[in-house]
Design a protein around this nucleic acid. Structure first.
Length: 362
DNA sequence: AACGCGGGGCA
DNA sequence: TGCCCAGCGTT
């Protein structure tokens, strides 16, 4: 694309963003930036981590809660893992919470966030995308964050596809990133890199959508290669997904007066570091003896089934309940019903809510 | 380079 | 039921 077209394109995006950009709780809009307001790197970081592979409606209440409870990175650094994990419960990808906590401690120790992408990249939980996003949005560094939205916008703009294989899609992403960076490099001096990044994300989320992109209102329409070809929805061509098998297991909800027994899972792996009721191992074959791995000989009542879909497998959990009459065989923590439900990841909350009789909204 | 890792909304 | 999505860390 010619330098002249690039300038026109960037001007069109800027105009569109000022008029149609989303108002988001963690965002300083272009008008406020013009008025001298600057983003808080802590809130930019917090939002970006929460939004990794997560939709805005799902992440927003968590962002509000974290911001209210821990207004600064120093406060978050001093929080306990008990509190951070319970506050993250339900948001998913729990290694993010562990890395968030570790990152807060590192940043507090440093005395503040590093202000360039290369340094940010060194921190736990901050990969190429998040480093570039924070650097551009919070510090106006001219680097290009490439998330799923920008990937789609740029792949259509330049009609960059792939053969649908892992390797092919990986190669395509490299080309897409180079084009994204070229856009940033062509930015006029008086434009902010962070505004461009957020504009392209908004465009991808609201106009250049995966299905039925609305090219009629798109500021990039006249520049878009995929549209010129007649079928923008064909791009990008990502790698094929794998099938998700079903696994089976049992969950054991032990009750003592108005309390539930939960155990803390090991820090890495599935639901790492999170509370859960005791469960059996999960296998692809239906267990022959569902009570075989119960945490003690109690009068187990079969309550029902819970279904839950993880990233790479579906789980059918048979839920049992018993009143404790002796010391359980597992080392755990007794929590009130309310505290337990609040601290549990979704699959655990489903199981415990079923055992306690009645689902409960988070 | 491949894999493990949540959750919810939608067609 | 399957598909989509503001990625990162480990192996």
């Amino acid at each position: 694309m010619s330098t002249n077209s690039l300038k026109k394109l960037l001007t069109a995006v800027d105009r569109w963003y000022r008029r149609h950009g989303r108002k988001l709780p963690w965002r300083i809009g272009p008008a406020e930036r013009d008025a001298g307001e600057t983003p808080d790197p802590y809130l930019v970081w917090l939002s970006e981590v929460m939004l990794q592979q997560t939709t805005i409606p799902h992440a927003t209440p968590y962002f509000d809660a974290f911001r209210k409870r821990w207004p600064t990175v120093q406060k978050l650094a001093k929080a306990s893992w008990d509190d951070v994990s319970a506050s993250w419960a339900g948001l998913g990808y729990y290694s993010r919470a562990r890395n968030l906590h570790a990152c807060a401690k590192a940043v507090a120790e440093l005395g503040g966030f590093p202000q360039d992408a290369a340094s940010l990249r060194q921190l736990p939980g901050i990969g190429p995308y998040t480093a570039a996003a924070i650097a551009s949005i919070a510090f106006d560094e001219r680097v290009a964050p490439v998330d799923g939205n920008i990937e789609r916008v740029v792949s259509r703009l330049h009609a960059i596809g792939s053969d649908g294989t892992e390797a092919g899609w990986r190669a395509a992403k490299q080309v897409i990133s180079a084009h994204a960076q070229a856009l940033v490099n062509a930015l006029p001096k008086n434009h902010r890199a962070g505004d461009l990044a957020q504009a392209l994300m908004d465009l991808g989320a609201t106009v250049c959508t995966p299905k039925n992109p609305n090219c009629l209102i798109c500021p990039l329409a006249e520049f878009c290669e995929a549209r010129a070809q007649g079928d923008p929805e064909r791009y990008p061509v990502k790698a094929e997904k794998k099938a998700t098998p079903t696994r089976h297991g049992s969950a054991f909800v032990l009750l003592r007066n108005d309390e539930v027994l939960l155990i803390r899972r090991p820090p890495s792996g599935l639901l790492g570091g999170m509370m859960m009721p005791p469960t059996s191992a999960w296998s692809e074959a239906k267990p022959e003896d569902p009570l075989g791995e119960a945490p003690g000989k109690f009068a187990w009542n079969h309550i029902g089934e819970v279904r839950h879909v993880f990233t790479h497998f579906a789980l059918k959990l048979t839920v049992y309940r018993a009143e404790v009459i002796a010391r359980p065989k597992v080392h755990g923590e007794w929590l009130t019903h309310e505290a337990a439900l609040a601290a549990l990841p979704t699959v655990g909350r489903k199981a415990v809510a079923l055992a306690l009789g009645g689902a409960r909204p988070r």
